[in-house]
Amino acid sequence: MLRFLVKRTLSAVLTLFAVSVLTFLMFFALPRDPVSGMCPRNCNPERLERVRQELGLSDPLVVQYGGYMRGVVAGRELGAAQGGHCDAPCLGWSYVNNEAVTDTLVRVLPVTLSIVVPAAVLWLLLGMGLGLVSALRRGTWVDRVAIGFSLTGASLQLYFVGAVLLLIFVYTLGWLPVPGYTSLLDDPVRWAGGLVLAWLSLALLCSANYARLFRAQLLETLGEDFVRTARAKGLPRSAVYGRHALRAAISPVITVAGLDVGAALGGTVITETTFGIHGLGRTAVDAVRAGDLPTIMATVLAAAVFVVLANMLVDLLYAAVDPRVRLG
């Protein structure tokens, strides 16, 4: 198990390293001048030149990359225009936001986490519940309703569902406040109230996939030999399903959930836009629009970190569920 952990961690670090190099190359080695986008108005050539100097853009790429990574790991000195000393993890200075990129991330990350984590719990519960019920009641009207629900869910668009929910619960019934972010620590009730529609619409859309996946997986598992063995032992149905079938059917769900959650943490652009909440997704989009390179770089890296972490978590969960994996 320890070996497994070490191996997984190493490969995660390697992946992150590769992603950082690629991102760096893509954004900093682009032929277009990265600086011109950074101060959209009243930029005189001298100012541009100074920014170039401060960013070290005339150094060789390797040196630039080294500087960047040193900043991430140990912090670095930036020019006075970029806020002077920049503590680790230093992700550079955004001229557009006029703040250290790290500060931006620290501000928007809790927002995205607040959207994604509860939504993921909801969509997993809803999806697996639906899948379980329709597998147990296969071929009955319950099954058909559940399948109908998941087909509908899968074909809907978030901005549509979101708009409908907003219209009903906020603007017509007035049961919920206009969506927005309040820190969980400041006021848990307002935190939940401002985000619940985002959770619901994400859950509604994503659970559909999980319902179908889990149903198919359960039905397949129910045909397995070991389920027949469980029945041949004289176990009651509840034990056959609960102890034997469910656990085996859950593995593929873990994989898909890991990918989905990892991707969602990288930014739920549409959700954030629909509900007017400013998280990582909106930050990334704004940065791209403004050509704000350090922020783009940082959001891409953050997304990569989430995907890699989610993958690692998936592997660990897999190992916890399936003893055969632990050997590798």
Partner: peptide
């Protein structure tokens, strides 16, 4: 009914299968 047959299974009548690897729960 299933509940009645279930009491016989494993106690009065037991079964072993062709492929013990797939017949045992891997987890």
């Amino acid at each position: 009914p299933e509940t009645e047959i279930r009491r016989l299974r494993g106690r009065n009548v037991a079964m072993i299968f062709q492929d013990p690897l797939s017949a045992l729960h891997p987890y």
